[in-house]
Amino acid sequence: MEFSVVVPVVAALSFFFAGLALGRRSMRIQMKKSQDTTLNIELEKMVAERTAQLKQAMEDQEAFAYSISHDLRSPLRHIDGFLRLLINKMDTRDEVVKGYFEKIYMASNRMSAMIDDLLLFSRLGRKELDVKPVNLNVLVHELIEQFKIIHQYREIEWKVNLLPTIPCDANLIKTVFENLIANAIKYTSKKPIAVIEIGARDLPDNLAEVFIKDNGVGFNSLYANRLFRVFQRLHAGEDFSGTGIGLANVKQIITRHNGKVRAEGTINKGAAFYLTLHK
C-alpha cells in the first residue's frame, strides 16, 4: 500500500502555484504584443480547471489517508483484545510462549503508533497555515531547555548561533525543530559526548538557511533523500526507536512554507540537516 501520497501532492501543488505566477506574468507580455485575449481567456480557464482538479485530488488523498487510518484501527483492536483474553486462558510459564505473546503485542503496538503517526501526517497536510514573524532564537532555546530536562543524564554540548526571524506558522515550525533536535539527541546516544550545533546563514534572494548538525551515527549520503519518506528509516528499530514519520513531517511542513530541506551525513561522523526558508 502506498501511503506517502500526501507529500507529492502538496509538493506538486506548490510547484503548480509557483508556475501559475510565472505563467501570468508571461501572459501579460503576450497580451500587450498581440492583443490576443482569446488565448488568454482559454489559458485562464485551463488554469482554473487544473487548480480545481488538483485541489480535488488533494482532498481525495487526505480523505483516503484518514479513512485508512481509522479502518485499520478495528482489526488491531481485535488482535490486542483476543491476545489478552488468550493470555488469560493460557499457561504462560513457558518462556517461548511468553516470548511469542510479547512479540505479537509489540507488533500490534507498533502498528498502532504508525496509524497515529499517519493520522498526524495527514492532519499536518490539511492544517491551514497561520503565518506570522517567528523569532527562531526564542523558539529553539525554549525547545532546548525542554530537551535538557528530559535528557538531564546525557552529556550534550549545545552550540547555538544567532538564528533569524522568519515568517512562518509557529506551531508547525516548532514541530520541525522538535523533530530535528530530537533526532540529533537520539542518534548521538551512543557517543560519550554529543555535540549538537544549530546555526544559520543568509542566502541570496532574501532566503535564510538554518542548519542542525550532530556528531552521531550519521548515515550514507547516498540515501539522504529516502530519509524524508513516510516510514523510511536508515537504522534498525532495535538500535534506535521510532516509526520513521518525523522527517516526513519535517519535509511536508517545510514544503508547505515553500522552503526546502536537505540532509548530509557521514557514517559514524554525524548528520546535518539544512532548511532553506523565505525571510
Binding site: 484501527r73 488491531l76 483492536r77 490486542d80 483484545g81 491476545l83 489478552r84 483474553l85 498502532s112
Partner: peptide, 9 residues
Amino acid sequence: IKPIDFTDF
C-alpha cells in the same frame, strides 16, 4: 471511542 489497548477498552 473504543480504545485500541484492550486494558483501556
